[in-house]
Design a protein around this nucleic acid. Structure first.
Lengths: 187, 187
DNA sequence: CTGAAATTTCTGTATATTCTGAAATTATAG
DNA sequence: CTATAATTTCAGAATATACAGAAATTTCAG
């Protein structure tokens, strides 16, 4: 890590720390940060040299990142080593992150909730608990359905909507009026 | 934990596990899950009894949850012990969670990025790195701005929009047409 | 003000995670 | 097919985190 420019070192260390808060370990966070700012693909030894931990850790880290589908394997001509990059389009990274967290955290939670909601409550307290679980299930499902739907949009459209923010609600409110004007009949 | 109904035990254990994936420890996850499904406020001893870990850990866990503003302190008449509940409205919980994660993770990241972007790059590689960091900064800022804006909406409206999903884009596309009809002039 | 209840802090121990370096495996050039 | 480069696996060491129980502190009824 000694010969990294300070700017990049700061960035890499920050994502190392942040990684720990997210169940991703420091090593993995640092590797990803390094790949993210690197102008060309890096091999495992480049990474070991830049970050200064054991070769085997780099291997484990890359495997972990691969399982998240967050990196791309490249090969250079006349070089049998594996080189890695992050996807060029940052939106692809964002989409992958959300998708993977959904698979790993949201779906198992929804499954657990559905299972538990199938059981017959034996008493008032369990009835209450099931109501609360049902509420949680519905809200999570609503949010993920919304996300699934939005995810299908192409990036440009998504960005348009994001920039619009809450103003989008004005359009929603106008909806009925539009149809009055256009179609000549209400509802 | 022995005398919890299986249904609730499953729920509590699941959130214990999930907690670990989120930098929140198992204890804290379990306490929150228990409070969430409990029909009445619980004191520290109730929690110790239900979950079976040391009294002192319950204290630490509650303190942690309090720092996230995820629990509410209650007092019962003629009982000086502290009782705790989760907010009644689950949307309040969701909003708090997002808000806290923003404060603890997003804001520090944005600050780091802004700092690093102020520095003058000394070479092509650092220039490239800064471009990537700038790209990251902008996307994070866009997403949080969007969220800040949406957060201001009342829940009912938010739910309407969520249910609408990607169809909202159709409204967005109609926007220009609407103004043609209503105002009589384009752009 | 006093003493008991309630809560929190603290320190050592248990547990879990991360990391290293050696050994094993896999891949490929010749 | 063989030799060597490249990568992965694995077992133990180092580190960090979680947890229990005792001690200290705070709170409050009387």
């Amino acid at each position: 890590m000694t010969n990294l420019p300070p700017m990049i070192q700061t960035f890499v260390l920050h994502f190392g720390e942040m990684g720990s808060r997210w169940g991703i370990n420091r090593t993995v966070g640092q590797i990803y940060a390094l790949l993210y700012v690197s102008p060309k693909p890096l091999n495992a030894d480049d990474i070991r040299e830049a970050l200064g931990f054991a070769r085997s850790n780099v291997s484990m880290g890359l495997k972990e990142l691969d399982s998240w589908q967050l990196i791309r394997l490249k090969h250079l001509p006349n070089d049998r080593r594996d080189y890695f990059t992050v996807p060029e389009d940052i939106w692809e990274i964002v989409r992958t992150l959300v998708e993977q967290r959904r698979k790993r955290e949201i779906e198992p939670t929804l499954t657990m909730l559905r299972d538990v909601l199938m059981e017959k409550p034996s008493g008032e307290d369990e009835k209450f608990a099931q109501n609360k679980m049902n509420e949680m299930h519905d809200i999570i499902e609503m949010l993920t359905n919304w996300y699934t739907d939005m995810q299908k949009m192409e990036t440009e459209r998504l960005v348009n909507l994001l920039k619009l923010g809450a103003k989008v609600y004005k359009l929603y409110e106008m909806k009925d009026k539009i149809f009055v004007v256009k179609g000549g009949k209400e509802k």
